[in-house]
Amino acid sequence: MEKDPVILSAKGLTKKFGGLTAVNNISFELKRGEILGLIGPNGSGKTTLVNLLAGNLRSAGGEIYFNGISIKGLPPYRIGRIGVARTFQIVKPFPGMTVLENIAVGAMNGRSGKKRTIKKAFSIAEEVLEFTGLSNDSGSLAENLSVASRKKLEMAKTLAMDPEVIFFDEVMAGLNHKEIDRSTEIIQKIRERGISVLMIEHVMRAIRSITDRIFVLHHGNKIAEGTPEQVLNDSEVIKAYLGKRYEQLIK
């Protein structure tokens, strides 16, 4: 049987906080093996959307499908177990545990945790450690990590869960150019493993270089969707979001 080319989709997703509509009637599709960018000004509803998709926020209107099954209303741990992993914009490491243990917890749980012994989980954690370039920090407590390493750890934790889909919520914010290039490379390699990625990002350099498609939120509405070229040159997007600063950024 041919696999559905779409791995995750949302239809008419809507979330209101009191009178404020944070996410308004959003539909999108994430294709298998794709890197989909999600951009928009602060407060446009990006993180709210990810929270809805990952089950951290509930009671919204609309539908969410993963591999053709509705996952709306499932608690976060169920979503984590069926193969959807996420990072948090404000990183949430396990501060008092070592970096290796942080990652191993991901390997023990997530999609394949049930099949793995504790030893296997740690050997997978070692691999992920290598893959994300955190080997030197293996034994340090997560609370002692630098900002860049914390962001990497956030990615490593999701990777160890053996997911089919990962949501990256601003994993490059606060990093310098070199670190951004390194993280871009990691995300690229993650895709090569067959994992589909939805990434929220403000770093345009990264968005432009690795995403296949982008969609743009503004005040909770989807205002544009397409290839990076199309979207980043869309006059409405520039007006709504990027404004004058964008031209400077391009230069």
Partner: peptide, 12 residues
């Protein structure tokens, strides 16, 4: 250490 993160990683 962090209940939200634990939950999202698949821990009931």
């Amino acid at each position: 250490e962090n209940e939200d993160s634990a939950n999202s990683m698949g821990i009931n």
